[in-house]
Design a protein around this nucleic acid. Sequence first.
DNA 1: TGATTTAATAGTAATAGTTACTGATAGCGA
DNA 2: TCGCTATCAGTAACTATTACTATTAAATCA
Lengths: 125, 125
Amino acid sequence: MRNTLQRELVYDIVMNSSDHPSADVVYERARRMMPRISMGTVYRNLKQLAEAGRIREIRISDDSNRYDKTLHTHAHFRCRVCGRVTDIETECGAAVPANGFSGKLESTDILFGGVCADCAAREEA
Amino acid sequence: MRNTLQRELVYDIVMNSSDHPSADVVYERARRMMPRISMGTVYRNLKQLAEAGRIREIRISDDSNRYDKTLHTHAHFRCRVCGRVTDIETECGAAVPANGFSGKLESTDILFGGVCADCAAREEA
DNA sequence: TGATTTAATAGTAATAGTTACTGATAGCGA
DNA sequence: TCGCTATCAGTAACTATTACTATTAAATCA
């Protein structure tokens, strides 16, 4: 994997973000530093960095994928009102398949959906 | 909610499928019974039936949504080789957010990815 | 039962997220 | 420094899904 300015920029943006940015958001932030960078480059590098294990891809159906600097498996919560994605602890730690599963496990995604505390309070008012 | 032939057909197809069909697959099966049914109708009814709690929507990022006759929360495994989605038991039962989460929880999706036993055996050969 | 209301339909167009393509550029090994 | 080729910018294409519109048909009611 070549060490290009574009790839390092994309990587730095994810590593300095704590808000689980989507490709779109990474693109907007990247353009501030490198105005001619293209969307395709951002997508390609996010995918490659995730494949290389340098960042983590959070797959969110019915929404765009997000990218996370935190590498270890952990659950996420997505607020359907504000769209924010936050880390969340689960009671049993990381879920694992019970005995009896005989395939090859490669990824685990735990996604909770609902309304975050902030938006719930705002809805009350 | 009106009781249309199209809606009952879509519902019956999901209830008689154990392979977690996507909207596309439901559409193909529906056309065999009702050739003039449209894709939009299938999508609309799957969404409405899921909202009404009569079927369950399985959200699979980087792939189309699937639909399940089983209503209670349970984890799924998706094989990246053959694309099949199967039910899977987890060691700790259903994951729940740890104490400290103060939002409103509405959905839980646990998705494992990897290679199923069949495809793994085939890759060996 | 037949008229009326309106949710739902078929068919089509549009949207969003993402990937593919193409000629030009630049990282890196020799 | 030269040459190879991965990567780039820009654009087109693709896929899953939703939106739109005129038409149809459930359900309500006289």
